[in-house]
Nucleic acid binder design. Structure first.
Lengths: 192, 192
DNA sequence: GTCAAGTTTGACAATTATGTCAAGAATGAA
DNA sequence: TTCATTCTTGACATAATTGTCAAACTTGAC
């Protein structure tokens, strides 16, 4: 390779992810990305073409991070413990940063109407994989009972986490979110 | 009054609401509003000052409509029926229009970071009033049982509806949303 | 009818983005 | 060391939007 790239791609994408997480795909500008990464606007255009392409790479990185964390939270304990750990992880994720960054997936989903197909598909893919993970964790828990179909339950749980993300943006504190999550878990566990 | 206004304020706000509902506060432009209402940009500035002021009036209108519909859905039947009717109303609301407009409250909440205080407060107010309504409907249902605190349960239910709004934006169909709502209801009703 | 007050209109200035490009700089293969 | 290739840089063109304003117009009280 001649005329080598002057920046570390992984680092730039990681920094870009933080910008997108804080501002959203729509509100983050190329200038924001240039400032945060120390790479000039023109270089970013040269390397990636446009903002959406950078976002896709950042979102992919986020997806793998998030699903790995979800997998870990769902790996041990009975069904109730797994659910509790999972919701805890989700709430921690969306209230991280100062000020809290919220949930990137949720923010991106809400922008769906003005985003490209590629973006929409990534969001759907993440949510689908998340449902899958949660469903499997419920099914494989040592105390599993077939009272409610695991796949249906998983969708409800994922939907609830999306609700938590909205409430966070609406101003609910981490404590309030955890309270709601506890009530939710108690109700579901009592149900089966 | 001399030099009378040439348009019907109620009608303009109603038309503006539709624009905001479809595009969101952030993406709707004054030109969009001018086109939709037939009132020139300059006149809108003269009458309302800025876009946010128009939005606040439209959102207030939306709030009253929405809470009235919620109140109706929650008015009759046992707790399970009330919950079912409420979730049905919410899903119908967010899948109305073609293409579906989604949930204005949720969209607005997600834009919270870039909106003014007044906007944020309206969202919080709507969600608070909604929790209140749901909590009262549960408490006053003929089959009430104190297994889970009604206020906590109401917050979980409202949170779940916000999740439904996100899933709708992510591409889930009305049918899928109703399925999830049914699973949710069954789980909660089984719980108490 | 007159006229003061409020409304409408189109033009204008300013701002903020995106995306493109030519010229210069850096790189590493030969 | 040479040099073709690629990257970097800053300037430029374009577009979208907000908000302001003066001039013209409309209205209804008197």
């Amino acid at each position: 390779m001649v005329g080598a790239r002057q920046f570390d791609e992984q680092e730039v994408i990681a920094l870009a992810l933080d910008v997108f997480w804080r501002k959203g795909l729509h509100d983050a500008t190329m200038q924001d990305l240039a400032t945060a990464t120390g790479v000039q606007r023109g270089s970013l255009y040269n390397a990636y073409g446009d903002k959406e392409e950078i976002f896709l790479r950042a979102f992919d990185r986020y997806t793998e991070q998030f699903l790995e964390a979800a997998g870990n939270a769902l790996a041990h304990g009975d069904a109730a413990t797994r659910l509790r750990n999972f919701l805890d992880m989700v709430i921690t994720n969306m209230t991280s940063g100062s000020p809290p960054r919220g949930c990137l997936t949720t923010r991106t989903a809400l922008d769906a109407a003005i985003s490209g197909d590629a973006v929409r598909q990534r969001v759907q893919s993440l949510l689908g994989r998340l449902e899958q993970l949660v469903g499997e964790a419920i099914s494989s828990a040592p105390d599993k009972r077939p009272a409610i179909d695991a796949a249906r339950l998983a969708r409800v749980i994922v939907t609830f986490t999306r609700g938590l993300a909205v409430m966070e943006r609406a101003g609910y504190s981490r404590k309030q979110l955890k309270d709601a999550a506890t009530t939710f878990t108690d109700a579901l566990v009592g149900a089966a």
